[in-house]
Amino acid sequence: MNQLMVVNHLLVNINSVIGALFLLSAVVLMTQRQAQAVLRLFVRQSILLAVSAFILGWLHHSAELMIVGLITIVAKAVLIPQLLTRTLGPDIRSRRELDFIVNTPVSLLIALGMTVLSYFFVAPLLNGANQTIAVNLPVGLDVLLIGVYTLAVRREAVPQMLAMMAIDNGAFYAGIAITTSSAIVELAAGLEGVMVVLIAAILARTLAQRVGSTEVSELTHLKEGERIGEKEGESE
């Protein structure tokens, strides 16, 4: 019995370390320029999420969380990268953003602000909460906020999409600690993740074929005050 307690204690501690790595991965993901680097980081982040789910599943004796971990591994660490490299291979390998909309130091300071903010919001809820919640909830919220910011400032289609999935990771990272019985949602979300990326990948490919680039910043035709060409809306 005592030995089990030691193991559990150790797992809680490892979960804390994973929390730190998870947060770090979101910050680094924000600063990466190459699509491939972003993808690699996203995969690592997803694995961290899955490991955390396994640990929490063990601690709470929750099969649902184990399933969540499995789904995360299968969908986000295996399927999504494969799908992306298959549909958008050359784009992932070669494309990078030379200039961000906001320069990196400023972005980093904003990420810092997000961290302060999320801890500030969550702090009152952590009184009396156990250590796993104290790690996962603020870190998850923070990764979510950083992800939203990353999504907003990215100009390339693939990193934008991966930022979107990172937001998902953040939400679920917090979610696995605070609810242990929402397997249905997570299951659906994992499945949907694949669908979402499938759709987004196909979209991005058609986009690349049509517009000639996956740079989203070139998509600025839909604006107020821009004249619409004659017959433009005509379908083929």
Binding site: L10, N13, S16, L23, Q131, V135
Partner: peptide, 10 residues
């Protein structure tokens, strides 16, 4: 161990 494994440390 909690201090050693804390996120701060890492």
């Amino acid at each position: 161990p909690a201090a050693f494994y804390s996120p701060t440390h890492l």
